[in-house]
Design a protein around this nucleic acid. Structure first.
Lengths: 360, 360
DNA sequence: GCAGGGAATGCAACCGATTGCATTACCGCT
DNA sequence: AGCGGTAATGCAATCGGTTGCATTCCCTGC
């Protein structure tokens, strides 16, 4: 592999001149430029990015560590969408992405530290779903730029992040169901330990409260993002008898499909008797039958925003600041419908009897 | 950021000693090691990976360029699975992945050249779907290690690759349909210009020929991997009247879903009247209703094999050689079934009348 | 005719590690 | 005591660029 010195020798100039020709940020006579480029061409010279990085103290690379939980990440479209967003932002800025795997939660944090500490990347996008407060603090004290994908576990001033407004979005989805006449609505969350699960539950509660509906604890269940989790939830909900929900909100589409399966096996028509809303608007959502109404979460846009914030901060030589909170969008398809009037009436009666039962 | 010299100063040794302590491949007295480690700890020292790469002339990184066609790659699970496979292999070997986007086919090749030429990665995995013979030759002459994901367009001795046996797999899938009694079988390919489409068509032909079935050109269509492509194919196939297929092979699951939609709209029961086989065994395949029979293509395993071959060659300081050809696996679910006897009889009659019509 | 100024280029230090070779110190053995 | 051998460490060159400063040269304006 030819180096800058080989080119210099061939063109009869000093290596620094070759460097200046390639960096383009200095005045070079047209004649010299021509000679240098000619020599470079003849030798098939390409500047060594590593040497350049060492000298410039920047790599034009941002890092990302794939959490071990996503080692089967193609099960859900979350990670692919994140990659997509990162690619959009980095490509536009002439950056590349350095990806590392991880084998455990601790290892994930170690990898982040390693990439940052060894300066293999100029900054890093960190998936924060289970990040604890201490870790964020440690990262921050390191002084290397990072942006959280998802918001920080607690209020951490000066930590930059990008996230979707999950609480508000869930609230809107549930309000939509209420608007269709539903009053017994189930919340099927993912992993109860994950922050987003709690936020969505809060949105669910907001919507119910705004409509004056008293939530029942039996309407709340967790499916850990698995198809079977949704299926099992239906079994448990149906045990509530005439208090069984007429609508389900599921925290991802896979669980929604499980719910649909559970309902189908019981001969319950969707959306005639029961409505179902999924989350993520995954590619299959629009192509299953009946097509799934789903809450679109802008993962790609979040990642793009995170990467953009990061890159901009890097270029300006400062730490990333501020946050980006993106709205979600409910994509209405075929699994949601107005509750039939008679069922509605029956439901009202049941609902009021429930109220009396609870307050004897 | 502390450097090796700071640590050396603090520990009262020469920088090279610190380097040896960290590389571990030299004899260091226990006392010195302790002092160095202590100093490093105190200074929060981490070796600079860039400087190390420059000196060692290796980055422990492999590259991948995302083709612009996959900028919407999460529509299909192909790219995520590739990432997954790459992650498995690289993580196990202590490598990382450098990802670059690309905006066009030409740009894709440029990015590959750039990464290789600038030595930002020790080698690269190249998606070969549309690679032409010249490009492969050029890459080869560069002398930097690469492995193709998918096999080379023509016989290129010395080019390493990993691929699935698409022809054989399609042959088996179609043979399976024939075994169920089907004799009028449609092939709905992706993009006719892509190599894999031709190979699968060949496998389809193999199966038909082995069963003594004369293929009709009307049974062959291309859906460009889109849901609507499958849907449209049904419309065209139905126009064949009593020569319409009783089974469909689709080159991805999305088109298979489109086919299912087309059949459903015409009131044709699946699998009672018509069978459908998809390809890729995407996560949704098992969760739609009816669950889709699909040809599982081991994309993750292919990518893992490609990365492993690449890394092994890098470590041994040679060019990657050889190839890996992986079998696919038909995952039978609910969209395929034995053709009803009476339909079968009718079909035989039609088939023989067709034969006479073709040979007057 | 000469001072001033800017353009073009060279020089050499530097980025932060690695590593072949030289040197020192210490050990065991005769 | 002297010698050989090995373990431990230091020295300095090297990887391949970048960049602040110095130098040269030429042009312009008075």
């Amino acid at each position: 592999m030819p180096t800058i010195r080989d080119v210099a020798a061939k063109a009869g100039v000093h290596p620094s001149t070759v460097s200046r020709v390639f960096s383009g940020r200095a005045s070079i006579s047209p004649e010299t430029r021509r000679r240098v480029l000619e020599a470079a061409q003849a030798l098939n010279f390409q500047p060594n990015a590593i040497a350049r990085s060492l000298s410039e103290q920047r790599t034009r690379t941002i890092g990302i560590v794939v959490p071990h939980v996503f080692n089967g990440f193609f099960e859900d479209s979350f990670f692919p969408q994140v990659m997509q967003g990162l690619l959009r932002a980095t490509y536009a800025a002439g950056y590349r992405i350095l990806v590392s795997g991880s084998s455990s939660h601790q290892d994930e944090i170690d990898q982040v530290r390693e990439i940052l500490g060894s300066r293999q990347a100029d900054g890093i996008v960190v998936m924060s779903s289970r990040l604890d407060v201490d870790t964020v603090g440690t990262l921050q004290s390191k002084g290397t730029p990072f942006v959280l994908l998802g918001h920080p576990p607690a209020d951490h001033p000066g930590v930059a992040w990008a996230d979707a407004d999950n609480r508000q979005a869930t609230r809107e989805a549930v309000s939509y169901l209420i608007g269709l006449g539903h009053r017994r609505i189930a919340y099927v969350g993912g992993d109860p330990d994950v922050l987003v699960t709690k936020e969505r539950l809060q949105g669910y509660r907001d919507a119910l409260e705004a409509a004056g509906i008293r939530p029942r604890s039996g309407w709340i269940d967790y499916g850990y993002f698995a198809e079977d989790g949704g299926y099992q939830a239906v079994a448990r909900m149906m045990a509530l008898g005439d208090q069984a929900p007429t609508a389900y909100y599921a925290a991802n589409d896979l669980m929604a499909l499980g719910i649909l399966r559970g309902l189908r096996e019981r001969g319950i028509p969707v959306p005639q008797a029961v409505s179902v809303v999924g989350t993520n608007d995954s590619p299959e959502a629009g192509h299953v039958h009946p097509a799934l109404t789903s809450l679109h979460v802008p993962y790609a846009a979040m990642a793009e925003a995170a990467a953009s914030m990061l890159i901009q901060a890097i270029e300006e030589g400062r730490s990333p600041t501020g946050f980006t909170l993106l709205p979600c969008r409910l994509v209405v398809r075929e699994t949601t419908g107005r509750i039939p009037a008679e069922a509605q009436a029956r439901q009202r009666a049941a609902s009021s009897s429930q109220t009396t039962a609870n307050h004897p």
